[in-house]
Amino acid sequence: MLTSLIASGTALALAGDTASHRVTQKGRSFAPGAISLRAGEGLAIVNDDGELVHHAYLENPDFSFDTGEQIPGSKTVVFFPKPGQFTILCGIHPKMKLAVSVK
Results as ranks from 00 to 15, higher is better:
10 T>H: 11
100 V>Q: 01
78 V>E: 03
78 V>P: 02
26 K>E: 10
46 V>G: 01
67 T>A: 14
37 L>Y: 05
69 E>F: 11
19 A>T: 09
5 L>S: 15
17 D>L: 13
61 P>S: 15
84 G>S: 11
28 R>V: 15
5 L>F: 13
92 I>V: 12
3 T>K: 12
32 P>L: 09
61 P>G: 08
101 S>L: 07
91 G>F: 03
57 Y>C: 04
19 A>V: 14
5 L>R: 13
103 K>M: 08
15 A>D: 09
19 A>W: 01
93 H>R: 09
49 D>E: 08
99 A>D: 07
12 L>F: 12
6 I>V: 13
69 E>H: 10
65 F>D: 01
55 H>T: 01
9 G>Q: 11
86 F>K: 00
54 H>R: 04
24 T>V: 14
72 P>N: 11
51 E>D: 12
9 G>M: 11
42 G>L: 07
10 T>S: 14
49 D>G: 00
55 H>S: 10
23 V>M: 05
72 P>E: 09
11 A>G: 13
10 T>W: 11
50 G>A: 15
72 P>Y: 08
17 D>T: 10
53 V>S: 04
79 F>L: 04
38 R>I: 04
12 L>G: 00
75 K>C: 11
41 E>K: 02
62 D>R: 15
61 P>Y: 11
31 A>I: 07
55 H>N: 11
86 F>I: 07
101 S>G: 08
99 A>C: 00
54 H>C: 12
23 V>P: 04
9 G>D: 08
20 S>V: 08
17 D>I: 04
61 P>I: 06
86 F>Q: 03
38 R>V: 06
89 L>F: 13
60 N>L: 02
25 Q>D: 00
80 F>E: 04
56 A>V: 02
89 L>N: 12
44 A>W: 03
57 Y>W: 07
93 H>L: 01
32 P>R: 08
56 A>H: 02
57 Y>A: 09
87 T>G: 08
66 D>N: 15
50 G>S: 12
96 M>L: 14
44 A>D: 04
87 T>D: 13
3 T>Y: 13
34 A>D: 12
102 V>D: 00
59 E>F: 06
71 I>A: 14
37 L>S: 07
70 Q>W: 03
56 A>K: 02
56 A>C: 11
49 D>W: 04
52 L>P: 01
61 P>V: 06
34 A>R: 12
83 P>E: 11
64 S>D: 09
67 T>P: 05
36 S>D: 13
13 A>P: 06
100 V>A: 04
39 A>I: 04
47 N>Q: 01
77 V>Q: 06
16 G>S: 11
89 L>Q: 10
27 G>R: 08
57 Y>V: 00
98 L>H: 05
89 L>C: 12
23 V>N: 05
15 A>H: 06
64 S>R: 09
34 A>M: 09
22 R>Y: 07
52 L>N: 08
3 T>E: 10
14 L>P: 00
81 P>W: 03
41 E>M: 06
103 K>T: 12
2 L>M: 14
17 D>N: 09
77 V>K: 00
86 F>C: 05
43 L>N: 03
